[in-house]
Design a protein around this nucleic acid. Structure first.
Lengths: 117, 117
DNA sequence: CTTGACTCTGACAGCGCTGTCAGACCTTAA
DNA sequence: TTAAGGTCTGACAGCGCTGTCAGAGTCAAG
């Protein structure tokens, strides 16, 4: 399928699909005239990227995952690096959450100080 | 005092102090030769900016605060807009926190799926 | 007066996307 | 055949900072 259809199927903009490719996350074939040609495997890959991205992962990080994921199954192949990356990412999310909690405290303190008025 | 000293006192880089000014958050005087000349009021302002920034506020947002803060006191002058901005900011932080929580779920689910190995 | 430290302005770069526009080619249906 | 719509590449922009560099003027101490 061509890029427009993939975009509609996945809900990812054409711009981003091309960007994924530029970042090495996607490697579609090409038609004789140079159009990108995607198959169902790419659809699955895009879905995975979306999922991981929803986890706050950066594309380069996701790329690491994909190395372990290139397989066929709908589920990620266990892979040591994958676990390591995953744990790091979880730590990252936890750190951000803590920081946000601090921010929340600072702000609510202010609000209390100036009166709930 | 000159910018270098203010930087040391506040721990904010010279680069950022100039940036604050460019964004309208600081308005230091100038010596005859064109050097920025800060007084204690500016020191306090920078401290406030740091505090608000720690709350995840963006400089333009902080600028809105400063409009209510330009006074003398060490504490923010109650000001309607300030309260409104504050509440919006708190909402923003809460939304981000929620999103992070979702991210955390996605990631830990993955980890569980591939085995805690 | 000389030297080193400080300051000035303006501009370029990077983070991680994401939209958009330009100019040109391809495809499909009428 | 023609026109519309899809696609291609490459580049510019923006978000909100933050560092750094260049070229030039200033200040202080020796």
């Amino acid at each position: 399928m061509k890029i427009g259809e993939l975009s509609k199927r996945t809900g990812v903009s054409i711009r981003m699909l091309r960007y994924y490719e530029a970042e090495g996350l996607l490697k579609p074939g090409r038609t004789e005239s140079g159009y990108r040609d995607y198959d169902m495997a790419e659809v699955r890959t895009v879905e995975r990227i979306k999922l991981l991205g929803a986890g706050g992962m950066t594309l380069p990080t996701i790329l690491q995952f994909l190395a372990c994921v290139r397989g066929e199954g709908p589920i990620f192949e266990p892979c040591d690096e994958l676990r390591v990356t995953l744990r790091q990412q979880i730590r990252l999310v936890e750190e951000r959450t803590e920081k946000l909690a601090q921010n929340h405290n600072v702000l609510t303190s202010f609000l209390a100080e100036i009166g709930e008025g």
